[in-house]
Amino acid sequence: MAERMGFFTDTSVCIGCKACEVACKEWNQIPDDGFVFEATSYDNTGMLGASTWRHVAFIEQSRPVAVGGDEGVDRWLMSSDVCKHCTRAACLDVCPTGALFRTEFDTVVVQADICNGCGYCVPACPYGVIDRREGDGRAWKCTMCYDRQRGGLEPACSKACPTDSIQFGPLDELRERAEQRVARLRADGNERARLYGESPDDGVGGTGAFFLLLDEPEVYGLPPDPVVTTRDLPAMWGWAGAAALSAAGAVALAFLRTGERR
């Protein structure tokens, strides 16, 4: 397997231009997501989904401003979200067909010709990334531009990002760079700056696409402490087995304790 490739999305330099969203759609020929004015700051695509593989969130944070006590904006957080390409990917684990697989770049990709649209990956993903597309019936998400990577190109979204908010490269290098960046921001008084998903010790074993956030993850619509759902699978089978045995036992009991015969 080649080196593990990933994304470091440094949201502290994101300017919310959405070039990543558009570049992704252009490259991957994704259909539009409908034309709905959401009145949620400058975000009109809502969240990641079958037809939005990069999504830029806009969070307006207010504080009372001295002048006349009017509400002014303190900061406007922007952040480009994407599939996390989890080390322990629930979507991949639960996919019954093998449509989801791990590539030589250690990324998680759906094979559209194999996916049967069972939809199981959809609620399995702890980040709400992958989704089934209406009409088409199959599941879709970011491929980390598998086709481009195989051709030696960087993904379309990071290529298009003007401020290098999205950085693509070997995951180890990115992690190092991210540590420095977050240290710098903290030193500059940004105490709430933190990395999200870079730690291999988190609930999904670390993500291939990790982030530098300036606030709690949930503010960006991200789960604060996601856990790969299959972590509890052995226990689940245990409980299910017990329940199955109990059911069998109960049925047997019902027959044995019921006196009448034909």
Binding site: V122, Y127, V219, G221
Partner: peptide
């Protein structure tokens, strides 16, 4: 806190 009350998971 949440992002416009939008779901985190699908």
């Amino acid at each position: 806190r949440s992002y416009y009350g939008r779901p985190v998971i699908k």
